[in-house]
Simulated assay, not measured.
Amino acid sequence: MTSSAKTKDQLFAYLDELGISHTTKSHPPVFTVAESESLRDEIPGGHTKNLFVKDKKDRFFVITVEERASVDLKQVHKIIGASSRVSFGSPEKMLEYLGVVPGSVTVFGAVNDTGHQVTFVLDEDLMRYDIINGHPLTNDATTSIGRDDLIRFLKATGHEPLVLKVTD
């Protein structure tokens, strides 16, 4: 993690400062949707899958979708406004911009993107859930936040989220 990257405790303090209600459940580190499915009964709401991608002009995006949804990486650039087909961003850029490592990509990484290098895209289908769950910068916990509060959090970090239908 870069020295300026916030910790999950700093993320929680920031949410508290914004008056945003959140709950977090610690669990063993999970790296895949399959591994995290055992937590479903314990944590209500929409569970997320996050893709860190870039286009040929080095514009970066975090695409946040419901965990079982599929995203057509050959077509999604047309929807999100990328200049070309997207490919996965490097672990180095992920760490630099979001302050996270592979397996921990999260919409909450916006708190570390102080240079506004990343566009955050929230799938329309995911936004049907009242509660949205994501990793709080590490994959050994899940933080639950209200849908409207998630938008408020992103705006507070200086990111205007795009709510688009990006899943098949």
Rank of each mutant, 00 (worst) to 15 (best):
T7N: 04
K8G: 12
K8H: 10
L11R: 02
L11H: 04
L11N: 03
L15P: 01
D16Q: 12
L18M: 10
L18N: 07
G19N: 05
G19I: 06
I20E: 07
I20V: 13
H22C: 14
T23D: 14
T24S: 15
T24W: 01
K25I: 15
S26F: 05
S26C: 12
H27M: 06
P28T: 04
P29I: 04
V30L: 05
V30K: 04
F31G: 09
T32R: 01
T32H: 05
A34E: 14
E35F: 01
S36N: 03
S36A: 15
E37K: 11
E37W: 00
S38M: 11
L39N: 05
L39E: 07
R40H: 11
D41Q: 09
D41V: 09
E42Q: 14
E42K: 07
H47L: 08
H47N: 05
H47I: 09
T48H: 02
K49T: 10
K49V: 14
N50P: 13
V53D: 03
K56H: 12
K56F: 09
K57I: 05
K57V: 10
K57L: 14
D58W: 00
F61Q: 01
F61R: 00
V62Q: 00
V62N: 03
V62T: 07
V62A: 08
I63V: 11
I63M: 05
V65H: 03
V65Y: 02
V65K: 00
E66R: 09
E67G: 11
A69H: 07
V71N: 06
L73D: 04
L73V: 03
V76Q: 04
V76Y: 00
H77I: 10
I79W: 00
I80F: 06
G81Y: 01
G81K: 02
S84C: 11
S84I: 08
R85H: 11
V86D: 04
V86A: 10
S87I: 08
S87T: 15
F88V: 05
F88G: 06
G89A: 14
S90M: 09
S90E: 13
P91H: 04
P91I: 06
K93R: 11
M94F: 03
L95C: 13
L95G: 14
E96L: 13
Y97A: 08
L98R: 00
G99R: 02
G99H: 03
V101N: 07
V107Y: 01
V107C: 11
V107W: 02
G109D: 06
N112P: 13
D113Q: 09
T114R: 07
T114K: 07
F120H: 05
V121I: 12
L122D: 05
D123M: 09
E124Q: 15
D125F: 07
D125C: 08
L126R: 01
L126P: 05
M127R: 03
M127L: 09
R128H: 12
R128M: 14
Y129C: 14
I132R: 03
